[in-house]
Write a protein that binds this DNA or RNA. Sequence first.
DNA 1: TTTTAGCACTCATTATTTTTCAGTGCCAAA
DNA 2: TTTGGCACTGAAAAATAATGAGTGCTAAAA
Lengths: 338, 338
Amino acid sequence: MSAKRGDTLLTSRQKELLKLIIEEYIQTAHPVGSKSICERMNCSSATIRAEMSILEDMELLEKTHISSGRIPSEKGYRYYVDNIMQPQKLSGEDMLKLQTVINNKSLAISDVITKSMEIVAEMTNYTTIVLGKSSKDNLVSKVEVIPVDDNSLVAIVVTDKGHVEHKNLYLEGTVSSNDISKTIELINKLIIGTPIDEVSTFLEYKVKPIISNYVQQHEILYNAFYNAFSDFASNVNHVNMTGKVNMLKQPEFSDSQKIKEIISKFEDKSLVNSIEEKESGVNIYIGSENDFDDDVTVIKTKYLINGEEGTIALIGPKRMDYDRVITLLNYINDNINK
Amino acid sequence: MSAKRGDTLLTSRQKELLKLIIEEYIQTAHPVGSKSICERMNCSSATIRAEMSILEDMELLEKTHISSGRIPSEKGYRYYVDNIMQPQKLSGEDMLKLQTVINNKSLAISDVITKSMEIVAEMTNYTTIVLGKSSKDNLVSKVEVIPVDDNSLVAIVVTDKGHVEHKNLYLEGTVSSNDISKTIELINKLIIGTPIDEVSTFLEYKVKPIISNYVQQHEILYNAFYNAFSDFASNVNHVNMTGKVNMLKQPEFSDSQKIKEIISKFEDKSLVNSIEEKESGVNIYIGSENDFDDDVTVIKTKYLINGEEGTIALIGPKRMDYDRVITLLNYINDNINK
DNA sequence: TTTTAGCACTCATTATTTTTCAGTGCCAAA
DNA sequence: TTTGGCACTGAAAAATAATGAGTGCTAAAA
């Protein structure tokens, strides 16, 4: 927590006002007027208006039009997140729901993460993303090939991190099972320990030149395996998104143009992949601070457990329940680290 | 083609008129007025109106309001599809695009199907779905277990159809590698040849009673494998959807409420799975004829190649370019059968 | 110096009315 | 049987009016 970032000098009353406005807006999605506040701060609406006006000068609040109530600006949310909001404890209900997954000791960690985030999506009505394992550091630890019928095989690659990829290969023409097993032997001998994203270049420089010495129908086989392995490298990133529809329930995305925009972005693989988090900790990217969409907030955190690494992220409107989401992500983060 | 289904007695002029109206509406999405037709049929708009009126009495056309042009009714589309439309040849351009995938002999058939349908989605601006392999008829042909670290394993199952499933298992406490290999041996011995959807009951009745005779830490191991296999059975259906966003581009789905409805349906796994086609041939389900949504048409066909079976489907507005889509699906169908 | 009541003013939103126009149905003549 | 003519319809767009939540400013009260 790089605390107090940009903590402009606000009186404690201004801080309280900002807190009340942001929290009301988070709940209602309607601009907040001076009247609705004054009861809670026992002073008149005129006083509130004066203070609001100051907060607007500081660019922490905005108006939607000249005579409207106030909504938080991006800077306002940022100030709230950095200087006002204080992390709550996880509610009993939330904890209970997560525990059923987290305590299930027979689940692999990657499943715990995915299922936890599915639960979070459901609880919060935001969209969650688990971006799994990048190919870096995944070393091939076993290549298995199983014949299916005369013309097709299944090739399976397992990495040292327990990542599995498979691909059905089709062989043009008949290839002797002897040739197949020789090829596999060769591949296994030469390739084990190679980073998975380097395997295709490795195949080209180490295997291709010598395969013809050992294998009769080397060309067909080499090509089949080459195709398979280049796919493996690019597939190692897996993505799991849950609750895309939740986003459409948010009032800020009720315009059909905006809906299309958001859905398109959800479908855009390279954009979704770019959500991968580099920094450590639970980080918050409000509006233009993220590369996904100016109208959303992305909260994400990197995980690295037993060599499996990835990012868990949550996307919601800028008007997000920051408090709860951060508490949830922290809780998941702490718990998957045992 | 169960031709001439419901071929009410239409004069050839009425047929031509219906054809023109439907084809214009498919292109423009606007109700078609009598004036815009009369040039092409060289007669006056009054004559067209009279004929339109007859077609409306037959429930082949509808009005959106009392003084509007005509749009096809569901029955109208049905009549068009059954009795008027005649299958075109595939355009050179369309064929070219598909050939790049279909002629790539090193791709497994399942990849050819998936990629073809991705291309179709892009070409047509509709949404395509490939619903893969149901679990029926998939017999376990190999179980492979690979240790990742002290507490975790990867279990891989391959079926006789070349279908592969894998799962990371986490073992609570340390389990001797001897016990693990004994368990695998036992499972491989007893389970090979079992339909994948029956494996978990099989485990319960055949393996559970005797495993304690061979394996020390049988409980941990049995549970881990039991969980893994029950997942396998339910995962055998895989789904690939492409072009969800295309649907939102269609003018009939520009209303934000409708968009949400469609997107929700796309996300609903059981609904998507229910698209599976039982009948043979390329079949057309217009509006209320399908279970997906009254405002769409679903065109689908079953495939069964080398033991791999599934459904390829296309979803678009009822105002769909039936001609082209059917030609495309037929072409793909013919070609994946070599 | 700070707070507050009072008041004129603004502008989104909603409702109401008016205008426009593509298209229809019907009829009588061709 | 076809067609030109014409009155009529109703959606859609444009213009107008009414409503009301909320503001900024000012001058008096605290």
